[in-house]
């Protein structure tokens, strides 16, 4: 029984670490993307069409 509990605890700990690392990566990417968009917002607008009236 103890072995089972220890094993579960170890798994939880590993998952937690993985989760935490993932979160950090996501936040890091998010700020990078935000910075990229802020810098290039004017440059990446959908190209407009000429008025064909």
């Amino acid at each position: 029984m103890w072995r089972g509990v220890t094993g579960t605890a170890r798994m939880c700990c590993l998952e937690s670490l993985t989760y935490s690392a993932c979160t950090r990566t996501i936040w890091s990417w998010r700020s990078t993307i935000r910075e990229f968009v802020t810098l290039n917002v004017g440059r990446f607008k959908m190209p407009a069409k000429e008025v064909s009236s």
Binding site: P47, A48, E50, V51, S53
Partner: peptide, 10 residues
């Protein structure tokens, strides 16, 4: 009509 720049006219 007048034209200001690419895609911006009439």
């Amino acid at each position: 009509s007048d034209r200001i720049r690419d895609h911006v006219d009439h």
